[in-house]
Design a protein around this nucleic acid. Structure first.
Lengths: 258, 258
DNA sequence: CAACAGAATATTGTTGACAATCTACAATCC
DNA sequence: GGATTGTAGATTGTCAACAATATTCTGTTG
């Protein structure tokens, strides 16, 4: 009896991820890549048809994304891609800086030689990307570098938060890692983080990890001062998003802008 | 036409809330109060029947709770109330301490006389509760006090995180606010927070807010040393462990269940 | 008696249909 | 003309049935 194929098929089917996971990933991808713009509404029926599933999994995926902060649901109206106000963005950077510092500190207290070497290899690879002016490669390496730190720190909730907040930040569609000078500064900060982790300097690692993200916030502040407006062009149908144009204040070491 | 405010409010209230919100609140209540024990599975059909709805809203509510960290879904098997390991609890306290410090610092930089007076009134009320040894009242006041700080700090994401992490902590079912000495120490720490906020001392408020939560972590550590075991008495049915080949329904590592 | 295959049962995964609600636009009135 | 009301279409909210999968039970076999 020809069983091989049947068995393989059976195993494949058993490992099939529930549709809601596929849908969630796809929606997240579309949102993060801007294929669905900030402030835009997610049409359940349309998305379901395009993805070849029914509306049930789409609705579940939307609820999941809602709790993660990528979309916002309005009763009897629909779910919208979140449109962040400038002060929301600043807050996200603050939170992310704190958690990054926490993760770096945790890793500094438990890092073994293997992870230390791995992080130093990341540094070298990013240095190479800077040399060849390959910004796309640097971007990917940068992402992998930070995720590796979060993973190695072995802090489940903090890592999840860090990743989740990173996705929220991407809603603003800022291109901060652009230009040779920015890359240069970024990897210098990376080097300080790695040095502190390698030295087992817990507080130094915390400070370096937080500072690296705070510099991203500084770039956002500069852009806000220059452009003065919202982070993203407000779509016509985003009335439910709080967007009062009040003065942005922040309580970190960067002082406050008025 | 001049429509009175209470009428508009009444109409708004009558406007039916989607079932998924009601179900989510009810499930959250049941989990937080321990009516569904940690590690226990949520039976969709049973819950739907008990709540008088169909399974759709129950599933959506579960997805929502999953992203919040209260439950964990396993593909083709069900969603379980999260069972926290001791180290997960410690991590939650750390995160909560950081965010509380952030919120207190933000409030110290923007507090007006009204909120300052309000916080001092909270202090006095909690002092009274200590005097009459009314632990239940102190518990409620304590909750309201911290939520008021989070609200007044006007940091949307940080506040949501603070509240959400607070619920996760409750999964461990610890009774830290018990005994006259504990209440005494707790309100002394509250007083330091309020003093820093009233003085507009941003960094002092951050430190006091963080320290207050760190002392909760210390109590958890003491208990762990004394009892040596898990945070929660392991029920016989609560030893569910996701195994190889199962699709754990989360894209991010939401921590382990043990 | 232990181990195993297979049926029976319970539970989750998914779907399409129907009801409730909102939005857009045309008809009506002042 | 501008505001208001009513209607049609689109979209979300909810449900119950069916399919796929996991679990439990049971009889069989070594």
């Amino acid at each position: 009896m020809e069983m091989r194929h049947d068995i393989k098929e059976s195993v494949a089917r058993r490992r099939q991820r529930p549709l809601v996971l596929e849908v969630r990933d796809e929606l997240e991808r579309m949102i993060l890549l801007g294929e669905i713009a900030a402030g835009e509404r997610l049409n359940e029926a349309l998305l379901a048809e395009r993805l070849g599933v029914s509306r049930g999994p789409v609705r579940e995926a939307a609820r999941s994304l809602e709790r993660e902060g990528l979309v916002e649901a309005v009763a009897n109206e629909g779910v919208y891609v979140r449109l962040l106000a400038p002060q929301d963005g600043l807050e996200l950077y603050d939170l992310r800086a704190m958690i990054a510092g926490y993760l770096c500190a945790a890793l500094a207290g438990r890092a073994d030689d293997a992870i230390k070497a791995e992080l130093q290899a990341f540094l070298a690879a990013m240095e190479t990307a800077i040399g060849t002016q390959d910004e796309a490669a640097y971007f990917d390496l940068n992402l992998a570098f930070h995720d590796r730190i979060a993973e190695a720190a072995d802090m489940g909730r903090a890592r999840a938060l860090y990743v989740s907040l990173g996705k929220e930040v991407r809603l603003m569609r800022l291109k901060v890692l652009s230009g040779a000078a920015a890359l240069r500064q970024s990897n210098d900060e990376h080097a300080r983080i790695v040095a502190a982790i390698v030295a087992g300097d817990v507080e130094g690692a915390r400070a370096a990890g937080a500072a690296h993200h705070t510099s991203g916030k500084r770039k956002l502040l500069e852009r806000l001062r220059r452009e003065g407006g919202a982070c993203h062009a407000p779509a016509g149908h985003a009335d439910h998003v709080p967007q009062e144009g009040q003065t942005v204040t922040t309580t970190t070491d960067l002082g406050r802008i008025t």
